[in-house]
Simulated assay, not measured.
Amino acid sequence: MSTPRKRRREGDTETRDQLIAATADIMLEEGYAAATSRRVAAKAGVNPALVYYYFPTMDDLFLAVFRRGAEANLERQRKALASDNPMRALWEVATDPHGTAMLMEFMALSNHRKDIRAEFATYAQRYRESQIAALTVIMRGHGVDLDALPPTLLSVMISSLGATLVNEATLGIDLGHRDLVEFAEDFVRVFEGVPWSRTGGLPAGSRAIGAESEPAAG
């Protein structure tokens, strides 16, 4: 008797996962407004009634998609911060088109759904707090003046600039992107031991970064 129950539970999980994956795909391809129960069911290859069997409302389904993506993003950030080159890894996460596009969809959706807005805000705070804590350790280890260049500021800059690059590129806007990417690359390379090469010196508050990599006078 136990085997059939186990199979049903596994089948339930598989169908639920299919619905979540189908919703995420539709949101990325066509936007959240296109993710209706019928479209999701058709994409997942199931009966439309099953959508509401597993998720009483579409908001419940959207929240399931968001939570799965949020946990994946938090895990990606943890791996980035634990990597040999955490600053570069953080920048790569921030400029990932897939992750940024999905976050923008949920940001738009949260403007119309109170429960999703609350969930989004909680996740964003958790993500940023984790990033700031790690940046504080990384920057302090490189001799950065944390008063002149606060980790909170750098965290917002990484997220904002990465999202701007991805969103504008999607719209076909690229003016100034090359300069920003080159600047970010130079900044990241300093944390990898490469001296700052741009005229005018290092950015304010970061002049001690990479000082050990600069050739000694004489």
Rank of each mutant, 00 (worst) to 15 (best):
R76C: 11
A72E: 12
T100G: 06
S83W: 10
Q77Y: 04
M58T: 09
V51D: 00
A80C: 01
N73V: 04
T57D: 08
A70Q: 06
D96L: 11
F55T: 00
L74R: 14
M104Y: 05
G69V: 04
R68W: 01
F106H: 14
Y52A: 13
R67T: 08
T100M: 08
A49W: 09
A42L: 04
L81C: 08
R78F: 08
L63Y: 00
G99V: 01
A64Q: 04
M87G: 07
A41D: 04
A108P: 11
R78I: 05
M107V: 12
F66I: 03
P48N: 05
T57S: 15
M58Y: 02
H98G: 10
A82E: 08
F55M: 02
G69E: 08
P48F: 04
R88M: 05
E71V: 12
L50H: 02
D84R: 14
M107C: 14
E92K: 13
Q77T: 04
A94S: 10
R38P: 09
P97M: 10
A42W: 02
K43N: 05
A44M: 13
K79Q: 14
A41Q: 04
E75L: 10
A108W: 15
L90P: 01
P97L: 13
F62Y: 08
Y53M: 07
D59Q: 13
P86K: 01
N85P: 03
V51G: 00
A42D: 04
D60A: 10
M87A: 08
V65C: 14
A70H: 03
D96S: 11
R76Q: 15
M104L: 13
S37M: 01
D84N: 10
P56Y: 07
L103Q: 15
G99M: 01
R39Y: 11
T100I: 07
E105G: 07
P48V: 02
E71F: 07
Y54K: 07
E105F: 03
L81G: 06
L74I: 06
G69D: 09
V93R: 09
R76N: 13
K79F: 06
P86M: 02
R39W: 10
A70C: 11
L61G: 01
F55P: 00
R88Y: 03
Y54P: 00
N85Q: 12
R88G: 10
R38H: 09
G99A: 02
A80P: 06
V65D: 07
V40R: 00
M87E: 09
P56D: 09
L61E: 06
F55Y: 07
G69I: 01
P97G: 09
L61Y: 06
G69A: 04
D60Y: 02
E75V: 07
R76T: 11
F55W: 03
V46N: 13
A64D: 04
F62N: 01
P97K: 12
A64S: 13
T57Q: 10
P56R: 12
R88F: 03
Y53E: 11
K79W: 05
T95R: 14
A101T: 14
R88E: 11
N47F: 00
G69T: 04
M102S: 15
V46P: 12
